[in-house]
């Protein structure tokens, strides 16, 4: 059970002076329950790629299979696919339109054909899980702060109970506190509901901390695909394409180069601290041995 992309190509404005190939022969398999980070420079094709996953964009060539079914098949229900693959766009707060927050979150479930009561229940559940104070539920979404609006917009997609949740730069334009809140929320959804999560980002720190697989895109192609430590091992190549490894990776590499026996491939601060402690106590115990002699 998974999403499989087979040699997917996409060309914007074909046969005009503005023709751009956004995706080149993308092959990917997204397994159930994975937490995947897609990183890449602006214009690398990340956003184009994720819009293929729920059928909003149609590949110029290539095939996409959802649970073994070809989504470009005539009998395939794209609406059903969109119910099961939830997509949160960049700056999702710009899509809010209803008079109250509650109604806005009900929009998705109601389009799924649920009754008003069922949709309402889903909306409550979703709003609670994004941690919005209850007294705000019946206010206009346009009066909220930026971070709150974004949480409402994410709730709008969560209320549809998708199996796969895709988020395009969910932390763009948020302050550090707002960023952590959103990312923790996403990580909780992944942990508690077993959702497959795909997080598009260009912040290495965010990605390294949460995901268990990283896909690096460059010029419409998949450059690297693997667990964070594997991918960040190529930090010099990543720099060449305008990306960078998490800062802590640099620190650890430099410490290792300076002769400290640390694991240079630590990708999160926690990991780095653990192996630094080990290395430092290791060094001091070695010194003690020398003193004794």
């Amino acid at each position: 059970m998974s999403i499989i992309l087979d040699k997917v190509n996409y060309i914007y404005s074909p046969d005009t002076a503005y023709q751009i190939q956004a995706l080149r022969d993308i092959n990917l398999e997204i397994k159930d329950g994975q937490f995947i980070g897609i990183i890449g420079h602006t214009g690398s094709g990340k956003s184009t790629l994720i819009q293929h996953l729920n059928g909003l964009m149609r590949a110029t060539s290539g095939a996409i299979y959802f649970h073994g079914l070809d989504i470009y098949d005539e009998d395939f229900e794209l609406r059903e696919l969109r119910n099961r693959v939830g997509l949160v766009f960049q700056y999702p707060e710009h899509q809010l339109f209803e008079t109250t927050i509650f109604d806005d979150v009900c929009f998705g479930p109601q389009n799924q054909g649920l009754t008003k009561e069922e949709a309402g229940l889903r909306a409550f559940e979703a709003l609670r899980s994004v941690g919005l104070p209850e007294e705000l539920y019946y206010q206009s979404p346009f009066d909220l702060s930026g971070g709150q609006k974004r949480r409402v917009a994410i709730a709008g997609v969560l209320a549809m109970k998708p199996e796969v949740l895709i988020l395009d730069e969910p932390t763009a334009g948020l302050d550090p506190a707002g960023r952590d809140e959103i990312l923790d929320l996403i990580a909780r959804m992944h942990r508690e509901r077993g959702m497959t999560v795909i997080l598009v980002s260009h912040s290495m720190e965010d990605v390294a901390k949460y995901v268990d697989r990283i896909v690096v895109m460059n010029q419409g192609q998949v450059l690297y695909d693997g667990v964070p430590r594997e991918v960040f091992r190529h930090y010099r190549e990543l720099e060449k394409i305008g990306l960078a490894a998490p800062q802590v990776t640099y620190l650890m590499h430099e410490l290792a180069a300076a002769g400290l026996k640390v694991d240079a491939e630590a990708t999160t601060v926690e990991e780095a601290r653990a192996c630094l402690m080990e290395a430092l106590t290791g060094v001091s115990s070695a010194r003690r041995d020398i003193h004794r002699e």
């Binding site: 819009q51 909003l56 609406r79 969109r82 766009f89 710009h94 929009f107 997609v157």
Partner: peptide
Amino acid sequence: EETDKIMKAQMARGAD
């Protein structure tokens, strides 16, 4: 572009 984006965002929420 904005229309396109909002349209897609609402379609992702099941709008028709």
